[in-house]
Design a protein around this nucleic acid. Structure first.
Length: 629
DNA sequence: ATAGGGTTAG
């Protein structure tokens, strides 16, 4: 029978290559040997010859194919389909194609596809999807191009696949081309296609196109809303995610788990504690089962909204945790300045739990060490990476440069940069430059700045940093040069903003802001506070003012920093002794950091400041970061 | 018969 089958099979594959022949005959051999272990209708009655076929209908075959647990089982059915002459039956053949591609057995699918004498748009679509599933984007798009060249019509099933391929490749040029082709074809694009397009544009950074398409859609379903909510969060507008989520629910659409995870993620980016509380209450109310993914998202949200205890509570309550959950919790301790807890958790993870860490776990850990000034521990962790088979990438090196640099070990940091065997990026040089600034090393700073301006000539932050360094060194000519260069290139300083939550509302301040209705009271309170702090020993650090002006003017400018205005506002508009939560889009400057320390002592207030990438918890005159700001 | 969205760093 085996010979019989193989011979029959070869008739169907006259153009088969040697490799293809061997793979397929192997499948048939396997299925033959295992026939007794697979339960199939009529399995005892496999005919000796295809001509004495016991006829089974299309639906029978399809449901049998769907019960297959692996490729060899499919191969067995495949053989029967051939024997009984059902390969001409398109639904059956397409289902076989589909199941092969689901098992990522793309070679089998391809061979079957080549053998099919009749194909329809489903067959082609399944092939496009099969290649996409195995991340073979080149072939996926190749098959799609063949569809375009053929007389087949485009359909709403193939389009989402290829659009997704463009998303994965971050190829908005091809993505837009496909969009245009689809529009020109005159077909109606359904929700699947539009959702895929919105997502593709958003992930490629073309948020304008994503919004436009979303607004113009006649109908939006849950996935479309979810995609748009995520798109807003990814493009730095998590406040809009929140609004969209409410709008969606007002339209009567009930979120599912993926939608909830998306909004939790947006809320993490938003960083507002009261919204985090509302959202978690809502999730509890709706009785959403909290699995690994949602649980991990909630850990991250609570931590980034400043509630480390709630994050830990979530972590402890989870029945199942993966590397991502552990890494999220380790990272949370890290940016809250609790390096000891981060290290402890890591040792529990790799010790008792025997869970292998990944490269992100190590970024989180190294970051924890640099935030807390744990130089020795950081270096140990860095060495440990290789033992887990993880090669340090540029992010790990950046943490190390940060760690060494902040600790004042600029020579070691510099040596590390020189000897590392990987390509250096702007974040790495930026880290080094920041350290040079803290420790006022002009020569090293110049070297870093040169590399930086070469890599990113349009990032104004680098120019500011360099001119600050020159200014602090009294090199006013150099300051002017850098400033001119910035102006020539049409660059502006990124504005610094500070937000503070008070009475469930968020208030925003910028330098010297006078737009707030309570402006007068804020400035009075700030003046009053500054006097008290100076009595307690606070000395303004004018190193953090750029301009070539008198000391007195510099002090005046320092006092206008947005974080100080926000602090003053918080003090007068919240009950005495209550915790203050402040967010800044850039890094808090050294003078403000010191100011907040004194303020926490004098006002007996705990202040949590979340800046560009870290939390600073000020309490009784000190900060959780131990001044490794 | 074939299709779209969700978790950790920077």
């Amino acid at each position: 029978m085996l010979r019989n089958l193989r011979g029959r099979f070869l008739l169907f594959s006259s153009n088969a290559t040697k490799v293809r022949y061997s793979t397929c005959s192997a499948a048939i051999t396997l299925s033959d040997e295992q026939s007794s272990s697979v339960s199939l209708p009529d399995s005892q009655n496999i005919p000796e010859s295809p001509h004495v076929s016991v006829s089974r209908d299309t639906r029978d075959y399809i449901s049998t194919i769907l019960t297959c647990k692996n490729v060899s089982e499919v191969g067995k059915i495949h053989a029967q389909v051939i024997i009984n002459g059902f390969l001409q039956d398109l639904p059956v053949a397409n289902k076989l194609l589909y199941i092969y591609s689901q098992f990522r057995a793309i070679a089998y699918a391809e061979k079957l596809f080549d053998e099919m004498t009749v194909k329809d748009s489903v067959s082609w679509s399944v092939m496009v999807g099969g290649f996409a599933k195995t991340k073979d984007f080149v072939n996926s798009l190749r098959v799609f191009r063949e569809i375009l060249r053929s007389s087949l019509n485009l359909d709403n099933y193939t389009l989402p696949i290829v659009i997704r391929v463009c998303r994965e490749k971050r190829d908005v040029v091809v993505g837009r081309l496909i969009h245009e082709v689809a529009l020109k074809s005159g077909m109606d694009l359904d929700c699947y296609v539009c959702a895929a397009l919105v997502d593709m544009y958003a992930k490629c950074g073309e948020i304008g196109d994503a919004c436009k398409l979303f607004d113009e859609m006649p109908k939006r379903d849950l996935v479309t809303w979810t995609v748009m909510i995520g798109a807003c969060a990814d493009s730095g507008r998590p406040d809009e995610s929140w609004v969209l989520f409410e709008r969606m629910r007002n339209e009567g659409i009930v979120p599912d788990r993926a939608a909830v995870v998306t909004i939790v993620n947006a809320c993490a980016k938003l960083g507002t504690l009261h919204k985090a509380v509302i959202l978690h209450d809502y999730i509890r109310l709706m009785n959403f089962p909290i699995g690994v993914v949602l649980g991990t998202a909630l850990i991250d949200m609570h931590a980034k909204c400043g509630n480390l205890d709630a994050a830990r509570e979530m972590f402890d309550s989870m029945k199942e945790r993966n590397v991502i959950s552990w890494s999220a919790m380790i990272a949370a301790y890290g940016y809250h300045g609790k390096a000891t807890m981060a290290l402890e958790l890591f040792h529990l993870m790799v010790g008792d739990r025997r869970l292998p860490p990944n490269e992100i776990t190590f970024v989180s850990l190294l970051n924890a060490c640099s935030h807390a000034g744990f130089v020795k521990e950081g270096m140990e962790i860095f060495d440990l990476m290789t033992k887990y088979g993880i090669k340090p990438n540029v992010k790990h090196y950046t943490c190390m440069i940060d760690l060494l640099g902040r600790a004042g070990r600029l020579n070691e940091a510099s040596k590390m940069i020189e000897t590392m065997a990987i390509e250096k990026d702007e974040t790495l040089w930026g880290s080094f430059l920041g350290a040079c600034r803290i420790h006022k090393n002009v020569e090293m700073a110049e070297k870093a700045a040169r590399s930086l301006l070469e890599l990113q000539p349009h990032n104004s932050g680098h120019y500011i940093l360099l001119s600050n360094i020159y200014a602090n060194d009294g090199k006013w000519e150099e300051v002017a040069k850098v400033r001119n260069l910035m102006n020539q290139r049409g660059l502006k300083k990124v504005p610094g903003y500070t937000w503070i939550e008070a009475n469930n509302r968020t208030h925003r301040f910028k330098v010297g802001d006078r737009t707030h209705p309570k402006s007068k009271e804020i400035y009075d309170a700030l003046k009053d506070l500054t006097e008290k702090l100076e009595e307690a020993g606070f000395v303004p650090d004018t190193n953090f003012v750029l301009h070539d002006v008198d000391e007195e003017v510099k002090v005046g400018m320092l006092s206008l920093h947005s974080e100080k205005l926000a602090l003053a506002f918080g003090l007068i508009s919240t009950p005495e002794g209550s915790l203050l939560r402040i967010t800044k889009n850039l890094r808090v400057c050294g003078d403000c950091h010191n100011f907040f320390k004194f303020a926490s002592l004098v006002t007996r207030r705990e202040v949590i400041v979340r800046d560009a990438n870290r939390f600073h918890c000020f309490k009784e005159g000190s900060c959780s970061c131990g001044d490794y700001w």
